[in-house]
Design a protein around this nucleic acid. Sequence first.
DNA 1: CACCATGTTCCTTG
DNA 2: CCAAGGAACATGGT
Length: 281
Amino acid sequence: MPELPEVEILVRHLRPALRGKTIREITVHRERVIRPTTVRALKQALRGATFTGVTRRGKFLLFALRRKRKPFTLLGHLGMTGRMYLQPAKEPPPRHAAVVLGLGKENFIYEDPRYFGRLTLDTHTLDQLGPEPLGKKFSLGYFGAGLASSSQPIKHRLLDQKFIAGIGNIYASEAMFLAGVPPRRAGKKLRMDYGVRLHRAIRHVLKEAIRCGSTIPLDWRGGKGGDGLFYYGTAPGAGEFYEERLNVYDKAGQPCPVCKTIIRRIVQAGRSTYYCHKCQR
DNA sequence: CACCATGTTCCTTG
DNA sequence: CCAAGGAACATGGT
């Protein structure tokens, strides 16, 4: 589920749910998700620490904590299949629980069937992230210069987290469609008027996804009477959102919603790109 | 069995 | 040093 909008929605739910809660127990089921932090170091840092806030940077979650008056950050990433949520401590952790933090009556669960995500004390990777696409530093000038200096295909550029933090495979295709930009065009060969359109489209698709609570099917199951417990995952009845909101992603073989041309799927840098050959040229 | 998957990181080659 | 391409990671869905 996780691109920038999904992480943003998750952060907004986790922030009030975690604030003020103290970690009493730490269980690491998969050491690879905490690397390079060791189990010993993680336990030493987290035991007795209290959550003071949750923020986002690109697709990363930043858990602000304080222990013995000293503030520090725990960094989270959902990879492809990660989920983070609270559940009653009496319920058994899910099959693919990677890390479980005991908070008293509740457990903070980080589960991830593929274990591609992270929950670590090492925040070094944040230094390399580019600007937030919805922030001030992602200016038209920055974006235009970043494209003009690159011979890489536009699609490839959009996924480069050092250039822009938070765009993933779904919203890259969607933004290019809205802007009428051909995915294989080299950055430096894109006409500036299309650069302007793409810049606007990126912000638009991300904002819309956030506004909808996400374009991807997901649902928050409030516990009994909205007590802060919730569930991050697919919603049985959310299919309609998905169909309506996404124009091209995963729509190969289906008609373009604008011109009815059949949507194509190509592979770039080992990943699928979906586009309308007629609208994007 | 085959192929695909919302992401990052590492390694090789040029 | 950089860029490009591919594999690896690990599991589940179709």
